Simulated assay, not measured.
Amino acid sequence: MDNIAGTKSSLTWAVNISVVVLVVLWLIPTIGLLVSSFRDRDQISVSAWWQAPLPVEQAYRLRAEGDIIRSGDLWVIEGNVFSASEMAEAFPEGTDHPPISAFGTTGRDPGAYAAGEEVPNRDGGTLVINEDGSYVFTTNEDPSERPPRLYVMAETPPEFTTANYDTVLGGDGMGQAFINTLTVTIPATVIPILIAAFAAYALAWMDFPGRGLLIAAVVGLLVVPLQLALVPLLSLHQQIGIGQSFVGIWLAHTGFGLPLAIYLLRNYMVGLPRDIIESAKVDGATDFQIFTKIILPLSFPALASFAIFQFLWTWNDLLVAKVFLPSSDESWVMTVRIADDLLGSRGGDWGILAAAAFVSIAVPLLVFFSMQRYLVRGLLAGSVK
């Protein structure tokens, strides 16, 4: 009875569970990115995002800044690690100090010894650091000119901050980068839509020699990697005089986006009622009038669908922007500014990267949710006759 039209399938529960599982799987990375964007850089490096509410055991390096006493042939330094300037940043005065869990004499193994254990150091003396942070360091050399290094392990309370967002939003040139991104994205979305709409109408409703070959060529171009065309296209731009410029990146995004745009719009236009177009021709309408007065209004879902894809692609693009825009920072878009300026050459500051990701997706999310009702209708173009 499940195959009878109008009856509800008994596997509806399986579909619902599958949808919930897929949604959760998509949300987990986003939640992790959001949590990481509010975490301290040091805590991100030692614990996962789902451990953010828990204390984090971190290694600290500090100078022994205690009182120096001469005892026979030895120099003795007594003090407390929480009084050191390096520890004061993590544990300000007046806050509860966590117990020291371990300590070490080298940065390679900062937790080699348990707190309270007396161990030899590299200078022929001894070192002991207790749980409360007090320590006694003995050495054969005068430590007044160069205090020795100490390494301790302590649990740091969870810390959440908006400093990552302050760094991203307050970075030099970020406002100009936002304007540059809009300058690149808007024309690079509008230009291919205008060209593809005319081409799709011709391939869908106009008879001319070679139309089938052109459609096959468009489908073939969908599978060509854009990386293959970057260097030849840049060389062509240099030859015709546009080089690395906003015009060059507009044309590059237009060329890379046209195959999908023509394919999507042509499939949608082919599925429009033939009677409407034939009636318009009988009434004396030209192809241009049919295109502007009938085809374009009816094809708005497909146009909006491609606009979403193209806008998201150009807004989040880094590779094409690095190739076709000038190298000066005045022309940087947001992705280039984040990658080259905020993250640096190593790109290890995950907190800034997570915050930058959420800042950069604000506009694409606004575009997506404002036009999402057209997305499915456009993607299903031509699937049902």
Rank of each mutant, 00 (worst) to 15 (best):
P148L: 08
F368T: 05
V76G: 15
F300Y: 00
L22E: 00
E159Y: 02
L353A: 14
A112F: 12
Y60S: 08
G175N: 10
G347E: 04
I68G: 06
A199G: 03
R70Q: 15
A163G: 07
W250Q: 01
G220A: 13
S305N: 04
G116C: 02
I17K: 09
S328Y: 04
L264H: 03
S360Q: 07
V367Q: 01
S101I: 14
L11C: 11
A177I: 04
V56R: 15
P53W: 04
A115D: 02
L264Q: 11
L228P: 13
V219E: 07
V46I: 15
A64F: 14
P192Y: 01
F91E: 08
D340H: 12
M206A: 07
G79Y: 09
V168D: 07
G125R: 02
E65D: 15
S85Q: 15
P192S: 04
V223H: 06
G347T: 02
K322N: 14
F82Y: 15
Y135I: 02
T254I: 10
R39I: 07
A202F: 09
S235C: 11
G116F: 02
W13R: 12
L319K: 04
T105N: 12
W26G: 05
P364Y: 00
N140C: 00
Y135M: 01
F306M: 10
S345R: 13
R108S: 15
N16E: 09
P326F: 00
L303C: 05
E330N: 09
P148Y: 06
D341F: 10
I193F: 00
F160I: 02
V384A: 06
A280M: 03
K293W: 00
L342W: 04
G212N: 08
R41D: 13
N121R: 05
F256K: 11
V367K: 02
L33R: 08
L319H: 03
G173K: 00
S47C: 13
L222T: 01
S18P: 08
D96R: 15
F246W: 08
D40W: 14
W49D: 12
A188G: 03
A5I: 12
V56I: 11
V21M: 12
V231C: 10
W205F: 00
S144D: 07
P225C: 05
S37R: 12
D2S: 12
Q58K: 15
T138R: 06
T181D: 05
Q58W: 14
P273S: 01
L236S: 13
A356F: 00
N140T: 07
S299K: 04
K281I: 00
Q310H: 06
L25W: 09
A302L: 03
R337V: 11
